[in-house]
Design a protein around this nucleic acid. Structure first.
Ligand SMILES: [Mn+2]
Ligand SMILES: [Mn+2]
Ligand SMILES: [Zn+2]
Ligand SMILES: [Zn+2]
Lengths: 127, 127
DNA sequence: TATATTTTGCAAGTCATTTGCAAATTTCGC
DNA sequence: GCGAAATTTGCAAATGACTTGCAAAATATA
């Protein structure tokens, strides 16, 4: 594995929350070109080492976020004040999604869910 | 209300599925500038007449889609073959979202959900 | 180690969306 | 209805998140 790909995978593995391409580009601005970071992310996701989702936040706009692929998929909460993520745990929507697909005759291959608002820490600080 | 705003609101009201800014720009290419369509969408959403969400599809990329605001919010399925939406009905996630927010101490102000895959019509045609 | 294959940096391009600004339209008071 | 004042529009340029062509650099293979 190349240095760029290792760097990207290491950062995402160590992070306790999803990371955006932008965050990785900033962190490795001295070592790698943004194009290389984007290509590394694509390579690692294609290879099955990473999962990603697109989320829109008022401050950072619409960006794709990456997490390590660990079998079951999780969902996340994004704080609109501190812009950190809170892990909502493993997906609990499978029953409802199955129910909705059966009702409408759909073949669902994936779903996207995220919640936004104010996280515990920010609310405790009065926001 | 101006002509551009009326056109945009009429199209979205008549549509049986969410419309993207791109679709509206195409439909009104002769009458209005894209900037005007975008500004009309912002105005109508701000005013509370429209709701929107961002969805990523492999063919059309990441775009914002608009529906008329009708009290309760609904969720949608997007077909990756014909790129039409199927209405999944009113949101059934409130209980689960409340449960997750309580567990983590979050103030959830909104959530995004959508499913993708192959719709009934496309599957019946063999896709 | 020499050669073939893959990856990288850089620069330019794409695409959805936004913005500055002067001209056109709409709103208001009469 | 009519003209000034406020708002909106079109056009062109900018933004920001990615993507891509291409030749050079790194890596794998023999
Ligand atoms: Mn954010
Ligand atoms: Mn589509
Ligand atoms: Zn927070
Ligand atoms: Zn379909």
């Amino acid at each position: 594995m190349t240095k760029a790909r290792m760097h990207v995978l290491e950062s995402i593995s160590r992070a306790k929350e999803p990371l955006s391409a932008r965050q990785l580009c900033e962190r490795y601005a001295q070592e790698h070109d943004p194009a290389t970071i984007y290509r590394a992310l694509h390579y690692l996701e294609e290879k099955g080492s990473l999962d990603s989702f697109i989320l829109h936040c008022s401050e950072h706009g619409t960006e794709r976020y990456y997490v390590v692929h660990a079998g079951e998929h999780r969902h996340w909460f994004h704080c609109e004040h501190c812009h950190r993520f809170t892990d909502l745990g493993l997906c609990r929507f499978d029953t409802l999604v199955d129910q909705m697909s059966k009702e409408k005759g759909l073949s669902v291959t994936s779903h996207t869910f995220y919640a936004t608002g104010i996280c515990k820490e920010c609310r405790d600080k009065g926001f």
